[in-house]
Write a protein that binds this DNA or RNA. Sequence first.
RNA 1: UGCCCGUUGGUCAAGUGGUUAAGACGCUUGGUUCUCAGCCAAGAAUCACGGGUUCGACUCCCGUACGGGUGACCA
Length: 496
Amino acid sequence: MADRPIRVRYAPSPTGHLHIGNARTALFNYLFARHYNGTMVLRIEDTDQKRNIADGEKSQIENLHWLGIDWDEGPDKGGDFGPYRQSERKDIYMKYINQLLAEGKAYESYKTEEELQADREAQQANHEMPHYVYEYEGLTEAEKQAKIDAAKAKALTPVIRFHIPEDKTYEWQDIVKGDISIDGNTIGGDFVILKRDGMPTYNFAVVIDDHLMEITHVLRGDDHIANTPKQMAVYDALGWEAPVFGHMTLIINGATGKKLSKRDENVLQFIEQYRELGYLPNAMFNFITLLGWSPKGEDEIFTKKEFIKLFDEKRLSKSPARFDQKKLEWVNNKYIKETQPSELTALALENLIEAGRVPADPDANTIEWARQMISLYIPQMSYTQQVVDLSSIFFEDRTELTEDEMKEIADDNALPIIKLLKEKLEALDVFTAYFINQEVYQIRLALGVKGRKLFMPVRIAATFHMHGPQLAETMELMGRDKVMANIDRVLALIEK
RNA sequence: UGCCCGUUGGUCAAGUGGUUAAGACGCUUGGUUCUCAGCCAAGAAUCACGGGUUCGACUCCCGUACGGGUGACCA
């Protein structure tokens, strides 16, 4: 096994959009493959026809690409081990199912849903773990055959169950958890490998696919630990060697302490949602990689290349990690500061359009204006959608000042400053930050007021807010008309 | 109820028998700036508990507690 070239896979089912937990699984498989110069396979596990959704596969692929994850083989790429959709591999599964049937390692089961349900209820009442009870228990081979024939005569369709050898103990060395050992009699009895609709079940199909696709390492969420012995039993039955398993801890909901579930609505769960808010792919990559894994040293910010180089599966954490939105914001802000303003503008523009702040098809002037406005907020922006709120100073038309703001301009110095400001700005030829600053300086010289006492009245009069980004730049972006209107409004309020 | 896994500050975490128990986010305080933010500096805060083993345990062993996972003709 160790000598074979490393092959790993990410195997989503197309049942929804890319979830953070799945993204993390994909990420670590990707890092593992790239670190060891191995091969990354994308396989679509679409055996549950009821749950598949129309664009599930497409959406997975798009979001993975957005995150910066790529693969070498998959439904969209081809490869020597295809097809890469389980729904297209039915003939392959049937071959092995027939083989197990012929060898007596699997059998037709006619137990109905009602019977199974009754079994489970009885077991539960008995404080036992729910498990399948062998329906041909104590029957001779002939009696068993007779029972099957009787069912066939009624035109019933069976499912195929796999016979679990209950006296075996399944043990493996897990890459992340270490030695794990599970008794064959605790895993729930003979399980279904072929459903009545003719599709194989997950626990069977993965084994066939992982083996045929020559997967060497299976890195997945630790909710699959309980499936592992079932899969190992299938490997045994087929005479195959199982791959190396690594069960990574789940990401848990910070508020509930439970596995991050698609039903939790208080946490943003899908990569797409972050994308829409203007999170950057590299920041997401960075943040998610550091959830449940850490490199040596003290750094927190790494490029993808560095992560690939540093990746070490032995440093995967054994205990679950909470998703910390605040830290993600910090990481994203770091990346925002490193990103070209033009790129940020493109993202933020979408958010502004979405919010109705900017027309859907902005002209060149608007784009340039937006670029400058967004630049003012780069130091404090956690994600670009925040410009919508941050920039409200440019869009709102307030008519009243808050108590705090009134206090700032109640000073005796305030009125002369504002009056002089109005005068100077009216006379200004070119309404740009540079010249505005000059005029403010002139006011300082003329009235002998400086610092907060000077700037606060100017800020409030010009912007109608006591907070905002650099004053002169803000005024330039607001434009002379709006600034003059603000000043008049504030003057009116003072005189009242 | 069974089986499996886990437990270092509020959060992410380093740590592998002897350390002042790193670092980051967050928080608090101070500095800087016209404000907010940012930036800089400082600070508070941690080994779940009980037994062993040992000269010495966060580190090894055993129990307890707590948390999580699993139980399908979902994956």
